[in-house]
């Protein structure tokens, strides 16, 4: 066998080294395995710790929220403490209106800004991306205070101010998601469209938007799902209301706000209202998320069939 010149002490022959390595491998194997078992067990422990809060959360929302639910709870307006017939109908309507208006504001802007970024790579689109990144990281409470300073101080507490805040919250998420979806459209498709003599708006409308549609729908609906549950942008803007309000320029109520107001009260009935509202809110968020994914799946299937 070969002898290797070595700077570190006497040379070691290969066959001797092979013996040494084999010996080590045999001797240490049990220890290596035990280490693996211990660490895997620790990871399982970590998983349990991750799941424990979720399980507890879901358990309590169902256990305490479900008993609060009734048809009346979903359609009535709040009653003073101790008077039966309490409900959150106005909050549900408020959430739908505020979030709906926010979508109306954010979706077109998000699409246009994403097209801007995708079609004109350069300094300016870099700026738009940067703004999207900064806004994504902006705490939602800051957006709430911004909407307060900009709108509440001028037009007063209103559903509109809340919608604006939610729109600002959703915009960067939408821009990034739209951009992602559009940039997966192969370059060939853009070029094929242009080569056929189509003008750019046509290419965008028929090729890019159609191909990217599933991704765009998912991204926008997921942003909506997030906005539905947000409290911080609403807390300084829509003020809350005890009644059904349909006019966006008036103070309104929304489910996150109702939870916040009720949770901090000591009455058991208020807490029950909070749990019930949390149940409805979570259900709504889940429906929106599931819708986001399944709708995209449907659009994908449809595109493939045609």
């Amino acid at each position: 066998m070969t002898t290797v010149p070595s700077a570190l002490g006497p040379p070691v022959t290969a066959s001797w080294r092979r013996e040494l390595v084999r010996q080590q491998a045999r001797r240490r194997l049990e220890r290596r395995r035990r280490l693996g078992r211990v660490c895997t067990t620790l990871c399982v422990g970590a998983l349990c710790l991750s799941l424990a809060p979720l399980v507890s959360l879901v358990f309590y929302i169902v256990a305490r929220g479900l008993p609060a639910l009734s048809l009346g709870f979903l359609v009535h307006t709040p009653t003073p403490e101790g008077i039966p017939g309490n409900g959150i109908g106005n909050s549900i309507v408020g959430t739908v209106i505020v979030v709906g208006l926010a979508m109306v504001m954010a979706v077109p802007v998000g699409l246009a800004a994403a097209l801007f970024v995708v079609e004109r790579p350069g300094k300016l689109s870099g700026v738009v991306r940067f703004v999207a990144d900064v806004l994504t990281g902006t705490p939602s409470i800051a957006i709430g205070v911004f909407a307060y300073a900009l709108l509440v101080l001028t037009i007063g507490y209103s559903g509109l101010a809340g919608s604006f805040a939610l729109a600002v919250l959703m915009l960067p998420i939408m821009v990034r998601a739209n951009e992602e979806a559009m940039s997966t459209v192969p370059l060939d498709l853009w070029e094929a469209g242009l080569a056929l003599g189509s003008r750019r708006p046509r290419v965008v409308r028929s090729v890019v938007l159609r191909t990217a549609l599933p991704g765009i729908v998912t991204g926008n609906l997921l942003a909506m799902a997030r906005a539905i549950g947000e409290t911080a942008p609403l807390i300084f803007t829509i003020f809350g209301s005890q009644f059904y309000v349909f006019r966006p320029t008036s103070p309104m109520s929304a489910m996150p706000l109702t939870i916040y107001d009720n949770a901090t009260q000591l009455y058991p009935s208020a807490q029950q209202t909070a749990w019930g509202t949390a149940f409805v809110l979570l259900a709504l968020v889940i429906v929106a998320s599931v819708l986001a994914r399944s709708w995209a799946g449907y659009l994908n299937r449809k595109a493939r069939v045609r």
Binding site: V4, V12, R17, L20, V21, Q24
Partner: peptide, 22 residues
Amino acid sequence: GLRFNGVRSKSLLAEAGEAALR
């Protein structure tokens, strides 16, 4: 590979590494 197999000795690692590279 030596480390995966539990070899810790620095001098053995250095020698085996050099030999393998040669």
